[in-house]
């Protein structure tokens, strides 16, 4: 119970830090909307030249994909850097280990807090712009929304749990730029940022599905837009949860090992 309160408090702290820069939020929204319009143009043209449906997407569902992915952009971390990475590099992480909270849990909770907050000023407005300017097709029944919201939450958490993994490599690597660059170069493509993963040729799609990246963005959008429904949708969320559990477990193990490294080297 106490632990839960601690994480809730950290989550709120993340939200508050985010909300103190209104201009930054507006700026993000403008950039988001611009990219959204450009994505809409090219993807709808692709649907058009495919004769009205492309890999199961029609104009309305493709547009829903575009604007939901733009909306999630401020909440999932596709670029790989984090506060934790900085704290490990600077050695400040030693202080975190002295606090009576789990270092991994605290770091991820704070980032998820920021991510969730970003849904309000960046996520929802992006979707709204899509609805008003382009028009989107969304499910008419409540089911996909209920499961979809949960799926989005899991997706955001998967992304920050993954980024945490990058950060803890800093216990052993002098320079984490390499892993960050590697992450950044594959995350966008495999998460389905610029084109849905379902447009990929078979081999590339299989490769994407073998990674946790679609769980961050592609799967939540599929569930939310009703591209997958019923038992299939539950199955997709199950896959997300499995990835989350795996990534968290690995993070836990690496954190403990990292802490030992820190103690041996004396920080």
């Amino acid at each position: 119970m106490h632990a839960l309160r601690v994480y809730a408090r950290l989550l709120v702290a993340g939200v508050r830090r985010q909300s103190s820069y209104p201009l930054a939020t507006l700026a993000g929204l403008v950039a988001n909307a611009t990219f959204g319009l450009l994505k809409t143009g090219i993807l709808l043209a692709a649907v058009g030249s495919a004769g009205g449906t492309l890999a199961g997407y029609d104009v309305g569902t493709m547009s829903a994909y575009v604007w939901l992915s733009q909306g999630l952009l401020g909440s999932v971390n596709l670029w790989g850097g984090s506060d934790m990475m900085q704290r490990i590099r600077s050695g400040d992480v030693a202080i975190d280990f002295l606090r009576p909270v789990d270092v991994q849990g605290a770091a991820i909770a704070t980032d998820v807090g920021k991510g969730l907050f970003a849904l309000l000023p960046r996520g929802l407005p992006s979707v709204l712009i899509g609805v008003l300017a382009v028009g989107v097709t969304m499910p008419a029944t409540p089911g996909p929304y209920v499961l979809g919201v949960f799926s989005v939450l899991v997706g955001i958490t998967v992304s920050h749990a993954l980024v945490y993994l990058l950060a803890v490599t800093g216990f052993w690597l002098v320079e984490t730029r390499g892993v960050t660059v590697l992450y950044m170069s594959v995350s966008g493509l495999f998460a389905g940022l610029f084109t849905p993963v379902w447009l990929f040729p078979d081999w590339l799609r299989t490769a994407a599905e073998a990674t946790p990246f679609p769980s961050m963005m592609m799967y939540p959008i599929d569930v939310l837009t009703g591209r997958v429904t019923g038992a299939d949708a539950v199955g997709v969320v199950g896959v997300q949860l499995a990835w989350l559990a795996g990534v968290l477990l690995l993070g836990h193990v690496l954190t403990r090992a990292g802490r030992r490294t820190l103690e041996v080297q004396g920080g």
Binding site: I42, L43, A45, A46, S49, A50, L54, A55, V181, L182, M184, S185, V186, G188, L189, F194, T195, L199, F200, P201, L204
Partner: peptide
């Protein structure tokens, strides 16, 4: 790498259909 990924995005799209615009 990042350049190649950006290129891949375009390739994927034009691979899925015959032509765009």
């Amino acid at each position: 790498l990042i350049g190649l990924m950006e290129f891949t995005e375009i390739w994927v799209l034009f691979h899925a259909v015959d032509g765009i615009g």
